[in-house]
């Protein structure tokens, strides 16, 4: 259960990587730090301003969504077409900036976000189930269902898929591609915020919480970078492997197990679990 829950978080962050990559062919290494910012904003709303947890969640998601869209419109849109390493360096640098901003604003202490699920358990037929972990799994399922419906059943969602598959053709259809890409950034940042808030009850909030993004990146690659179901599956696999290697293997293996699995995967099946065979144009 715990491995599955942590895997869900990896999966959500990986989903953010994949959405942005599919649309703009840009790997956003600041994805984990967006999660961190989202968690801090929720913390501010709930603890400092005394708002309800759900209100705090909505505020954090909205603020991060707007922030994500601006990040694209103001900065990242301009670097499309630049060499890949320059763009990667830029997003890594942005991530470092976000951490600095967070440490200046909130200090480097460790915070707790009180949630309706914190420290609650239900005993079902002798098995103790913690609400914290269940909330992560259920929250992820709901979010994925919402996103799936949006991407397949709304005009805007299908247009996002279209713009990700063939940017030039999307222009020819009169789809405002730049705006659409900013909206995809908004969704990715919003999903990262949700992941940060879901994670909060089981992991304390500090400025380095965003390093979870590295494992999520491994999850995205494992799933075939470019596949949304792949990202989620990759996240869950890595969460489970970490749990079991933590339990059964010597100390220290837990944190590297994700990368070991990734290396094995890349050696055996480089296109990832759900590697798409499709091509992408322009």
């Amino acid at each position: 259960m715990n491995g599955l829950a942590v895997g869900c978080i990896y999966g959500l962050v990986a989903l953010g990587f994949v959405l942005i990559y599919k649309a703009t062919e840009l790997v956003n290494f600041a994805q984990g730090d967006l999660l961190m910012l989202g968690a801090f904003i929720a913390y501010m709303a709930v603890v400092l301003w005394g708002l309800d947890y759900w209100v705090g969640l909505v505020i954090a998601v909205l603020v991060m969504a707007v922030f994500g869209a601006l990040l694209d419109a103001v900065i990242l849109r301009r670097v499309i077409g630049q060499p890949q390493f320059a763009v990667v360096m830029l997003t890594i640098g942005l991530g470092a900036m976000f951490r600095t901003f967070a440490s200046v604003t909130w200090g480097s202490e460790i915070y707790t976000l009180p949630t309706p699920f914190s420290a609650k358990v239900t005993t079902l037929g002798g098995v103790t189930i913690s609400h914290e972990y269940v909330s992560i799994i259920v929250g992820t399922m709901i979010l994925c269902a919402v996103l799936y419906t949006f991407f397949t059943h709304t005009r805007l969602g299908v247009a996002m898929q279209a713009a990700s598959q063939n940017q030039l053709a999307a222009y020819y259809m009169g789809i405002p591609v730049k705006l659409i890409f900013s909206l995809i950034w908004a969704i990715s940042a919003g999903v990262a915020a949700v992941a940060g808030i879901l994670l909060a009850p089981v992991s304390l909030i500090d400025i380095n919480i965003g390093f979870i993004g590295l494992k999520a990146f491994a999850a995205a690659v494992l799933g075939g970078f470019g596949s949304i179901p792949g990202a989620l599956t990759g996240g869950i696999i890595i969460g489970l492997i970490e749990l079991y290697s933590g339990a059964w293997l010597p100390e220290g293996f837990k944190d590297v197990s994700a990368y070991v699995v990734l290396l094995l995967m890349l050696a055996v099946r480089p296109q990832g679990l759900f590697g798409a065979l499709g091509r992408k144009k322009v």
């Binding site: 005009r155 299908v158 279209a162 598959q165 063939n166 030039l168 053709a169 009169g174 499709g278 091509r279």
Partner: peptide
């Protein structure tokens, strides 16, 4: 041609009417 390869034929056509 430049179709949207992973969308269905009907979705491609609907995208044509996006505006």
């Amino acid at each position: 041609r430049e179709v949207f390869p992973f969308l269905s034929v009907r979705e491609n056509l609907r995208m044509g009417a996006y505006i």
